[in-house]
Amino acid sequence: MNILMIEDDQNKIKQIVDELNNVYPSITITRRNSFQSGLKEILGNRQKYKLLILDMSMPTFDISNKETGGRLRPFAGKDILRQMYRKNIFIPTVVVTQFENFGELIENVTLSQLNIELKESFSNIYMGTVYYNAAQDNWKQDLIKYIDKYTKESEQISG
């Protein structure tokens, strides 16, 4: 199974990749590190990926020695889902985030509120949210639960 992960935190990437490779040794994970590189990958390879693991808050551009990443986008994941919806791209998506609140003080949104909004707006592709905490392991079971659910549903469809 081909999975695309759009995530900018290197420690989080390592932990997620290690867990997925341990549980699903035959998967292939492609990684992108920003809103722009992730969206470009989705638009250019819409049929390639069976699942998307998506961070919510990330920089606009990839960070490098020459690039600062541009501005931080608190709702970059939601913006990517919106673009997928507009372009009729149907990749089942799990949001994995380490934040419980998003946006500025004026536009503060809790993880629970965001989850409800994403379910309502993107019900055809949004599977749910995993709250990631590097000091705990329960995020691993939550992520595996979503992937197993997707795998079982896709097996039933393909017969």
Rank of each mutant, 00 (worst) to 15 (best):
1 M>P: 11
3 I>T: 11
3 I>N: 08
4 L>R: 08
5 M>G: 01
7 E>K: 12
12 K>E: 13
13 I>C: 03
16 I>T: 05
19 E>Y: 04
22 N>M: 12
22 N>R: 13
22 N>C: 09
25 P>K: 04
29 I>H: 00
37 S>P: 05
37 S>C: 11
39 L>A: 10
42 I>M: 00
44 G>F: 11
48 K>A: 05
51 L>I: 12
51 L>C: 11
54 L>T: 14
56 M>D: 05
56 M>L: 08
60 T>S: 10
63 I>S: 07
64 S>Y: 09
64 S>K: 12
66 K>I: 11
66 K>Y: 08
67 E>H: 03
68 T>G: 01
69 G>C: 12
75 F>M: 13
76 A>C: 04
77 G>E: 08
79 D>S: 12
80 I>E: 06
81 L>A: 02
84 M>L: 12
85 Y>D: 14
85 Y>K: 15
86 R>T: 08
90 F>W: 09
92 P>T: 08
92 P>E: 10
92 P>N: 07
93 T>D: 04
99 F>M: 14
100 E>C: 04
100 E>V: 11
100 E>A: 08
104 E>H: 12
106 I>Q: 10
107 E>Q: 10
108 N>I: 10
108 N>K: 15
110 T>D: 01
113 Q>N: 09
114 L>C: 05
114 L>G: 00
122 F>Q: 04
124 N>W: 05
126 Y>C: 06
126 Y>F: 15
130 V>C: 03
135 A>S: 15
136 Q>S: 10
140 K>P: 01
142 D>F: 09
143 L>F: 14
157 I>W: 05
